[in-house]
Amino acid sequence: MGTAIERFDEKARRTFDSIGRTEVYKGELLRHPVYTRVLHWMVALFFFLALFSGFGIYLPWLFRWFTPVFGGGPLSRQMHPWFGVGFVFFFFLQVLNWLAPMAWTTADTKWMRGIGKIVGGKEKLDPPDTGFFNAGQKVQFWEIVGGCLAYLITGIILWAGARSFGATAVAISYVLHDLSALVMLGGIFIHIYLSTIGEPGTFQAMTRGAVSEAWAWTFHPAWYKKVTGRDPRQAYEKARQQQSGTAPKQS
């Protein structure tokens, strides 16, 4: 099965690469191919459509001003499940695409133990064994996988309603659907922050698809080593010495 998924992903990446383009300039590394980027933004688009069309139904007395945006209450209610289906569909493709790099490793467990230093800004460089994705990103990814499953099951129950599934199933799904949305929403704030102003240089990974080498050796040293063959800490030291202008010795 693993190979079937890999073959599917390979083909999709090739197809998208033949349509789109990814420019990788000097001093940069390829981070995400066209296929990944398209999937990511389709996921994000449908996520926000579902989120905003859901707000008016979630807390009408606070968020009912969202419903006119989607053509009124009845249309919001009709569109919301379809936005959700779009979100789950594209995220499902993304899961296939990212299954391999999202696998949990012992390095991730270690990374999680040191999360305080990273969040607190004490540690400017990620641990040397941090790979393509760090443990925080993996947690977010798997949280969304779980969230999508919860959405799908409870969403279908709410969609078809008490007529098909009974009043109790709807009442329970109602709560679980909300919980899933709340957890995901809380996580998305952190995600957007880190991929924009929180860790400058990250956003372009999902737009142009390329990141600077400095970004790579800072945040994903093991991945840097894998793609360049160079040691991330040495590369960093070299850049630091060059930068301070009065580089004591040329290496």
Partner: peptide, 28 residues
């Protein structure tokens, strides 16, 4: 409403992180 407010703490949290700790930049 209570848990909705908690989810918003995500936004408050990252804002406070930005002003108090600051962003993590590529090094050096």
């Amino acid at each position: 409403p209570v848990l909705g407010t908690f989810a918003l703490f995500g936004a408050v949290g990252v804002l406070l992180h930005y002003v108090a700790v600051g962003p993590r930049r590529p090094q050096p």
